[in-house]
Design a protein around this nucleic acid. Sequence first.
RNA 1: GCCGGGAUGGCGGAAUUGGUAGACGCAGCGGACUCAAAAUCCGCCGGUGGCGACACCAUGGGGGUUCGAUUCCCCCUCCCGGCACCA
Length: 914
Amino acid sequence: LRPGPGRPDPCGYNLRFPVNRASMQTQYHPEEIEREAQAHWDRTRAFRATEEPRGGRPKFYCLSMFPYPSGKLHMGHVRNYTIGDVITRFQRMRGCNVLQPMGWDAFGLPAENAAMANGVPPAKWTYDNIAYMKKQLRSLGFAIDWDRELATCKPEYYRWNQWLFLRMLERGLVYKKTGVVNWDPVDQTVLANEQVIDGRGWRTGAPVEKREIPMYYMQITKYAQELLDDLEALPGWPERVKTMQANWIGKSHGVNIGFPYELAGKKELLRVFTTRADTVMGVTFCAVAAEHPLAAHAARSNPPLADFVAECKRGSVIEAELAQLDKKGMPTGLFVAHPITREKIEVWVGNYVLMAYGEGAVMGVPGHDERDFAFAGKYGLPIKPVIDIEGRTYSTDAWQPWYSEYGRCVNSGKYDGLDYQGAVDAIAADLKAKGLGDKQVTWRLRDWGISRQRYWGTPIPIIHCAACGDVPVPDKQLPVVLPEDLVPDGTGNPLNKTPSFLDCECPKCGKKAKRETDTMDTFVDSSWYFIRYACPDQGNSMVDERAKYWMPVDQYIGGIEHAILHLLYSRFWTKVMRDLGLISGIDEPFARLLTQGMVLNEIFYRKGSDGRITYFNPADVDLKLDDKGQRIGAVLREDGEPVELGGMGTMSKSKNNGVDPQEIIEKYGADTARLFMMFASPPEQTLEWSDAGIEGAARFLKRLWAFAHQWHLLVATESKRRAGDYAHYEYPSDLARSHPAAAALRLQVHSVLKQASFDMERTQFNTVASAAMKILNALYNPLGFHALGDTQVVPPATGIPERVLHESFGILLRVLYPITPHICHALWYELGYAGDIITAPWPAMDATALEQDEVELVLQVNGKLRGHMRAPRSAGREQLEQLALAHDAVARHTAGQAVKKVIVVPGRLINVVV
RNA sequence: GCCGGGAUGGCGGAAUUGGUAGACGCAGCGGACUCAAAAUCCGCCGGUGGCGACACCAUGGGGGUUCGAUUCCCCCUCCCGGCACCA
C-alpha cells in the first residue's frame, strides 16, 4: 500500500518509500524505520529552510538554545530539542515556512580544563565533541536545517564579535576601566555580576574574590530603561522570567542629596542616594563604602582606619554571608553639614555600604532603616524618629518592621504632617533650590565587563603600543585569529607565551606592539547567534537582508537558568545592532519564550559510619513495594542490602542519578525517548524520569505498529487497494442511523482532535500524546483486533466503513507525528496515505462529527450529582426541565420539597434547586 | 525579608478556564494464554459504609461568593525557584 507506479501523488511530490518491501514488517523495529526515515529526510533535504517571497507562507523561526559541546548529550538536551522539534513540525503542518537551526556554543572553560587534563588542545577536544553530539542529535530525528550549522569558535563567526566590538568602541558603548571586579580563584578569571551566584562563581562554585583589573565594559546600563520597558511588549514570555529581569535591572526612584563640607579650603559635596528623602530630618550620621574617595582620604592620616578599609576591601568573603555579617564601621573624623538644618553630621566608613550602588555613600537614618538602626545601636549614635505611623508608638529599644513603613512626618520642622509623597516632593524642591540635590532614578544594573583572562575565547581586537596606547585593530585586519594548537597548562593564559600571536605592529605608528590577550566573555558569542543563523554563509558582513526575513525568533526554548544572563544580554545586543542599523524593524529578539523544566530522577544513597554519603545509580537499585504498590524501601541489587530513598533531584554526576540518552535511544529508539519526554509532564514543569514510563511509551508504539500491521493485512487484499478513494471524506447526514458505531467513533476521534489542536497551540504536549493514545484505544475495539492472534486477518465485525477507520487512523498519525515522526512517517506510507507526512496538513476537525441527535445531560439537585439522562439535542429548556423533574434520581431527592429554581446549561447539565 | 510559582489517588499528571474531579499513562490486584515465565490480551483500581441499588467523605487547612468552586476572593500552613546590607 505504498504509492505505486502509475498512481499520481495528490501532493505533487514524486516520493517513494525508500525500501521496496513486499509486505509490512510484522513487528516494530525502531532502529530500522528510524534509519530509513532519517535517510529519506536527508536525501530529500526535507528541512532546509529558504526565504520565500512576499505572499508566500508565513515564516516561523523556532529556536532551541544551542548546546555547549561538553562531550555528549544529556537528558536536558533531549527534552529541550524535542520540545523545539514538536513545535517545528506542528508549525510546518499549519502551513508555515519553518526554520529550525542548530549550532554550537563552542568557546568556554571546560575545553581548557579538559585540555589540561588530557594534554589535548581545546580546539580538538571541542571539534571532536561537536562531531559526536551532532551524530547524537541526528539520531533523534530533529527537523533541523543543518546547512545553517555554526560554531562560535570559528573565525567566520567570532570575527563579527570583534567587528561589532570595534563599532561599539567607536560609539562609546564599549569602554575600558580599571575597577573592582569579581575574581574566580579557580578559573583564574573575572566574572560578570550576573555570573556570581550567592557569592560564588557560577561555574566553579568557588568563593569570589575582589580584584582591581583593567577591563572592557559594554554599556548595557545605557539601555536599562528600554530593557525594562520592553518587557511589557513580551506577552509570550513567562511572567517569572520578566519579573526576574525587572528585579535585576532594579529601577529605583529617589533623591540625590549633597551634604556640604570643606576640604583643604575647597567646598565639596558628599553625595548620597535615597528612596526615603522624607526621612532626611532623621539623619544622625553618614556612612561611606570602604572604596569611597572620602574613606581613602581619611585613611591617609589614620592608620587604624586604613587597616579597617583594607580589611573591608579584601572582601574574600561570600557576599551572601556578608549580608548576615555584623554591621561594622569606624568614624572618619570628617564632618558634613545637614543639607537643611546645617547641623554637623559625622561621616563613618561602614562595611555595609556598597560602592557599586548609588553614590557609594548613604545618609544614616537609624529611626527608619533597619541597617542604620543596627549600626547606630552598635556605636551609640543617636536615633531620631521622624515618621509617625498612626496607632503605633515608637521605641528605640528594638527594631520593629513597621519603623520603615510610610507615614506622616513629625519632628521635621516645616515638613511636619506631610505624607511620603508630599514630603519627598517638598524636600526635593527645597534641596534643588539650594543646589544640594534633586530627584534621581538609580539602577541596580551595572555595565557588562566582558574581558576574560582566558585562552579559549574571542580575542579582543586591541593592540597595545608603547607610543600610541590602546589601538583598535583595523577592520581590514579582522579577524584576529585565535591559534588553535595551544594547550593551557594551568599557569595562566597561554596566549601570553605565544609570540606569534602576541607580537605585532602598531596600526598607527608601525612600531612593534603587543596584542591584547584577554578574550571575550562567552556570553558575547551567544548574544547574537540566532541572528547569524539567518545568513551563516555571509562572508562580507555580520548579517544581511535574510535576517530581516527570519527575525524575530517566533519561539525560543531553553532552560530557566538563562532567565537573566543570556536572555538579557541577547536583548541588549539586539537593540545595539538595531541602533547601528544592522537589523531593522526589530526591538526584541524572542517573541515567545518557553522555559522547559528540569529532568529529575530518583536519588539513592547510603551514609557510611564516617558520615560519608555514597550515591547509587537508580539503575542498580530495586524498589520494594507493599501489596498496594506503595514503596516501602529499596535495596542495592549487587548486595541486597537496603539503601536510603533521597527523593527526586536534578540529574547530576554528584548524585549519580543520570540516565544516558544514548542508551535509551539504542535500546528503545528515538521515538520512544521523544514520546516519553513529551508525555510525562507538560514542557514547563519538571520531568521525573521513570524506567517504567519509558516502557509504557515503548508499549504504546508497539501497539500502534501491531494495529497498523493488522489493518494493513486487512486492507491489502486485492479489491481494497483504493487508498485514493479515501481522499475526500463525505459522510451521509444520517450516518448516526445507518452506522451508529461509525458515528460514535467519529464523535470520539473528532472530540479528541479538537482537544489535541487546542493543546498543540498552547504547547501542552503531554495531553497531545494522551490524545493519540485515546484515538488508538477507540480504534482497537471496532476492529475487534485484540481478540485475534498475532497474524490472523479478520474483517471488521462492526460494520464501520473502512474509510471511517482510514480517516481516524490518518488523524491519529498526524496528531502523533510531531512527537514521534519516524514511526508516523513509516506508517503513513505503509497504509497508503497520499504523499509524505512531512507535507501533510494538521488534520481539520469536522464539526458535524460532533453533532449528536441525543445528548447526555448531567442531573444535579442542589449542585450534587444525582444521575444522567439522555435527551434530544433539539429539546427546549422547558422540555428539559420537565424531563429532569420526572427523572427517578431527581424525583427521589426532591420529593416533598419545593422546587425553587432549575438551571439548564444546554448540552451539559440540569441543576434543580430545592 | 522581598518577588514569582506551586500543593489533586500508591506515582506522573488531566479537567477545553465556574458545570460529571481523577482523562491518559505508570504501579498494583484478579483472570485468559503457557509445562512455566516473559510478552500479549481481558477486567478491577480515591476513601468509608453496604450483598446490592446507593449513600456519605474527598483537589494542603479554614472561611467567603455562587444554583454549582480544583478553578474566583480573604486568611493560614507547607514546598520549589529567583533576588537579597540596593540605601
